[in-house]
Simulated assay, not measured.
Amino acid sequence: MKEGIYPRSYEGDESYAFISYAHKDSATVWPIIDHMDKDGYRIWYDDGIRPGTEWDDNVAEHIQKADYFVAFISEDYIKSDNCRDELNYARDLNKARVLIYIEKVELPGGLAMRLRRLQSVRKYKFESDEEFYEKLYQAENITICKRQQETIPAEIKELYEQIKSLDLMKYYKYNTYIDIDKLLLDFSKELYSVGVCEINTEIKYKFRYLQMMCTDFKEAFVDRSGYVSFFVKDLSLVELQKRYETYLMYVSKYQIRIATFTLSVDRIREYENYFREIDLNEEQIKHILADLIEMGDYAKRIDKVKKTTEKLECFNISRNRRNQLMVKAAMLLYNDFLRKTDMVIDGLIEENGKEKAYEILLNDPELLRIY
């Protein structure tokens, strides 16, 4: 979880800036985009990826829709294939761009030639943050992403009071960084922007239900408030209850994480049916589904689950041994955030042979985290 409070990604039809950065630079980048947000700029970064969507497709879509592209250049950025893909895609779409160099880097020849023509701000050269932001906001066309002064409708003020009754102030009383009033009011605005304007009984019940069922409901306001908006706007109370009751068939917890609610009942049924088709027994299915539910929005879709399971055939093992590995390593095998499992498996087999590679992975599933 992030330290401190950082802005939600903008979702809407107005101009916004797409933020491209290497995740290893998060500690440097997040405070800058937080500052930009507080200065009135609409931004989107990958913290805004909605549950149940394809990561690459979502990123590409937001680059397409963005009217501005901000890249935080560093050694890690240059080494990242994903970052360079984003930069090249923005160039192909002829997006207005500014490069923020957060450290001195040596650019490869071809890249140096292409980037030399783009406007840039070298943050590491400024003696103060004030000078840096003054220079950044002088970048050509960046002001198209700046919000106008907003008036707050009466409906938002009412919703603000409803959310405030959840007593977030008490929960965060030891964190002096957080402006609770601003946090609540901003979240109220988000609900308003997605069409939740009427403070009716169902909305109140949804808030109350999520508060009771989820261990991290209050954190969700700060770190993943888009989820709460999604549940309040798009899901009925009956659907929330159906999801929760289905989860309890596999997870022996009273309270679960907010991200878990992103798994629909239909999606869980798809997992169940597939695992039965490939001859897992009910106890094995229960163990695997418990892990998938625990992952919530990080769980792979059914097509990727099938692809990953089929990859295990590389070991030339019996179904029983395959199932043993699936049960033990489900949290890693079926985590959509881990994109290199195929390469790890191929590398283990190449170095050790199929039989030994299987035993190595069974004994140490954490190897799947290697990139």
Rank of each mutant, 00 (worst) to 15 (best):
Lys218Arg: 12
Glu219Ser: 04
Glu219Cys: 00
Ala220Trp: 04
Ala220Leu: 01
Phe221Pro: 05
Phe221Ile: 11
Phe221Leu: 07
Asp223Asn: 11
Asp223Ile: 10
Ser225Gly: 12
Ser225Cys: 09
Val228Ala: 02
Val228Ile: 15
Val228Ser: 02
Val228Leu: 15
Val228Arg: 05
Ser229Asn: 09
Ser229Gln: 10
Ser229Val: 03
Ser229Met: 02
Phe230Ser: 13
Phe230Asn: 13
Phe231Cys: 04
Phe231Lys: 06
Lys233His: 03
Lys233Ser: 02
Lys233Asp: 01
Leu235Lys: 13
Leu235Pro: 04
Ser236His: 10
Ser236Asp: 03
Ser236Glu: 02
Leu237Arg: 09
Leu237Ala: 04
Leu237Cys: 05
Val238Trp: 14
Val238His: 15
Val238Arg: 15
Glu239Thr: 14
Glu239Leu: 01
Glu239Pro: 04
Gln241Asn: 12
Gln241Val: 07
Gln241Trp: 07
Lys242Asn: 12
Lys242Ile: 03
Lys242Ser: 06
Lys242Cys: 01
Lys242Gln: 15
Arg243Trp: 01
Arg243Met: 00
Arg243Lys: 14
Tyr244Leu: 05
Glu245Asp: 12
Thr246Gln: 10
Thr246Gly: 00
Tyr247Pro: 02
Tyr247Ala: 01
Tyr247Phe: 15
Met249Phe: 10
Tyr250Asp: 04
Tyr250Leu: 02
Val251Arg: 09
Val251Asp: 06
Val251Ser: 06
Val251Pro: 04
Val251Tyr: 06
Ser252Lys: 15
Ser252Asn: 14
Ser252Gln: 13
Ser252Asp: 14
Ser252Leu: 00
Ser252Met: 00
Gln255Asn: 11
Gln255His: 07
Ile256Asp: 06
Arg257Trp: 08
Arg257Phe: 03
Arg257Leu: 03
Arg257Asn: 11
Ile258Gln: 11
Ile258Ser: 14
Ala259His: 14
Thr260Val: 13
Thr260Ile: 05
Thr262His: 08
Thr262Cys: 08
Leu263His: 10
Leu263Arg: 15
Ser264Ala: 09
Ser264His: 13
Ser264Cys: 01
Ser264Leu: 01
Ser264Asn: 11
Val265Arg: 14
Asp266Tyr: 13
Asp266Gly: 07
Ile268Lys: 09
Arg269Tyr: 13
Arg269Asn: 13
Glu270His: 11
Glu272Thr: 14
Asn273His: 13
Asn273Thr: 15
Phe275Ser: 05
Phe275Glu: 05
Glu277Trp: 09
Glu277Gln: 15
Glu277His: 13
Glu277Cys: 02
Leu280Val: 09
Leu280Lys: 11
Leu280Asp: 04
Leu280Pro: 05
Asn281Tyr: 12
Asn281Val: 09
Asn281Ile: 11
Lys286Gly: 03
Lys286Pro: 01
Lys286Met: 01
Lys286Asn: 11
His287Asn: 13
His287Val: 02
Leu289Thr: 08
Leu289Trp: 09
Ala290Gly: 12
Ala290Trp: 03
Leu292Asp: 12
Ile293Pro: 06
Ile293Asn: 08
Ile293Ser: 05
Glu294Tyr: 14
Met295His: 13
Gly296Thr: 12
Tyr298Phe: 13
Ala299Gly: 13
Lys300Cys: 09
